[in-house]
């Protein structure tokens, strides 16, 4: 397997606080790579460094062999690095159809096209319809996003990232806050993501992590604590200690 995404000695300081401490992470192509760690371990900061929302204090981010440390967010997306957000980041007044069409248009470099109406770009519309069907959103595609049930919004959140045809997809707690009855639908979608898409999963739910991931990295206090296969991490007493508390 080849490396698709790696960080080299990544450091992020906020004043005197070190949020990301010399993290060198390697993610293999097609992996289901989970990133776990207690609250405040710097998981979200690391994600923001990967996607470009934050600039690192030092260190590099390399996607498919190319240094993307200096690229803005939208350029990284067009290179195949997409993410979902822990708290939904959607367009409340858009319909799911409009949202997905937007993402597809941008990917196909149609976003600056300013004359033909949306419906005239038939391939994008067809693809959007297919994508909405795949994510179980066909029946609500014409409704305002803010009126959708939370589970559907969650699915749209993933669909928007997926519409960018990512090679690496960062899922930030995909099932967080989803009511139990809608949860299985979200998880089924996550499990059904195509094998060629590398998935990096940030998650607190250990059942989901252990059933989904094939490799796990543990972050503690901003630094990479340990990394291994699911079996290795599950058997590691130090990881258990971190999660249950050192004194437990």
């Amino acid at each position: 397997m080849s490396t698709v995404l790696e960080t080299r000695n990544l450091v992020k300081r906020f004043g005197g606080f070190v949020a990301t401490d010399n993290v060198s992470l390697t993610v293999q192509r097609g992996a289901r790579h989970a990133l776990i760690g207690p609250n405040g371990a710097g998981k979200t900061t690391l994600i923001n460094l990967l996607t470009g929302s934050l600039k690192p204090t030092s260190g590099r981010v390399v996607l498919e062999g190319e240094d993307i440390t200096g690229l803005p967010v939208h350029r990284r997306v067009s290179r195949g690095l997409a993410r979902t957000f822990q708290v939904n980041q959607l367009f409340p007044d858009f319909t799911p159809l409009e949202s997905v069409v937007l993402a597809i248009n941008e990917r196909e470099r149609l976003g600056a096209s300013a004359w033909a109406p949306l419906a005239a770009h038939a391939e994008a519309v067809d693809e959007a319809a297919g994508l909405l069907e795949r994510f179980g959103l066909t029946d609500v595609m014409g409704e305002r996003t803010s009126h959708l049930p939370y589970g559907k919004q969650r699915l749209l959140e993933i669909a928007l990232a997926f519409a960018a045809k990512p090679r690496v997809l960062l899922l930030d707690e995909p099932a967080a806050g989803v009511p139990e009855e809608e949860r299985h639908e979200v998880l089924a979608i996550v499990r059904a993501l195509p094998a060629e898409v590398t998935v990096i999963l940030i998650e607190h739910d250990m059942d989901l992590v252990f059933s989904f991931a094939d490799r796990i990295s543990v972050l503690v206090a901003g630094a990479l604590f340990t990394e291994g296969t699911v079996a290795e991490i599950a058997a590691d007493p130090r990881v258990k200690a971190i999660y249950l508390g050192e004194d437990a």
Binding site: H74, R75, F91, L102, R107, G111, A112, L118
Partner: peptide
């Protein structure tokens, strides 16, 4: 024409949620 084309949709996306707009590739 402008506002009903993909260009106009991307403008509305910037207004509605700039963080997400960047994350679907809107410059």
């Amino acid at each position: 024409r402008l506002v009903h084309a993909p260009f106009g949709l991307s403008l509305k996306a910037i207004k509605a949620n700039r963080v997400r707009a960047a994350m679907v590739g809107v410059p």
